[in-house]
């Protein structure tokens, strides 16, 4: 649902979103050293696969977004990683449009990256429960912010949609809860198995 098809958004919204997406991408690529290339690509691949996992929810199922977790692990490099994922989803499955790639990128990457910045200093292998709860909280919030961004963009493009958008945003609440719990469990697992992937002082892949 985070994928907006081509043709929905108006040109001004597209322009602003694309500029913001390009900006984030630029920041991310600047942080991308030679040695980070395989790592970012492999993590992008994992997120691509994990986001195609269908999580059962009553009679239907939802797909995970994992924006919070990506932000936590990669920082600004989340932008290139998510960009790659979106491009492949558009190419292979036809999810999301072509001209909206920049907008989708901002929707998916920005909340996770910013929330991760706030939460990251408190994530330590020594305090797994606190770390996992914080990671879960930031994952839930980033889903909600993503939903909010999608809603605002649609409402700005087509003001008649404004009332419908709030109905749509409600659909994200169960996903936010599931994301929070799954992200918390991933964090717990990583802190136990390979804490340097999530709890170290630098983002993974950043080699001094």
């Amino acid at each position: 649902m985070a994928h907006i098809p081509d043709g929905v958004l108006s040109l001004p919204v597209l322009a602003v979103g694309t500029l913001a997406g390009a900006g984030g991408l630029w920041l991310g690529v600047r942080k991308l050293g030679d040695r980070d290339i395989p790592q970012t690509a492999l993590l992008a691949a994992v997120f691509f696969i994990a986001s195609s996992l269908a999580f059962p929810l009553g009679p239907t199922s939802v797909h995970l977004l994992l924006g919070g977790l990506i932000g936590l692990m990669l920082g600004w490099k989340a932008f290139p990683a998510i960009f790659v994922g979106l491009l492949l989803q558009a190419l292979l499955f036809g999810f999301g449009g072509l001209t909206v790639l920049g907008v989708d990128l901002v929707n998916m990457a920005l909340p996770g990256v910013l929330l991760a910045m706030a939460v990251r200093p408190f994530i330590k292998a020594g305090a797994p429960v606190r770390s996992a709860s914080l990671a879960g909280l930031s994952a839930a919030l980033s889903v909600i912010v993503t939903a909010g961004l999608v809603g605002v963009e649609i409402a700005l493009s087509e003001p008649a949609f404004a009332p419908a958008v709030s109905v749509m945003a409600m659909a994200y609440l169960p996903l936010a809860i599931i994301e929070a719990l799954v992200t918390a469990f991933v964090t717990l697992y990583l802190l136990k198995v390979k804490p340097e992937m999530i709890g170290a002082s630098t983002f993974i892949g950043t080699v001094p």
Partner: peptide, 9 residues
């Protein structure tokens, strides 16, 4: 997902 991430890294 955690295990997949570990193997990827």
């Amino acid at each position: 997902i955690g295990q997949l991430l570990v193997r990827a890294v």
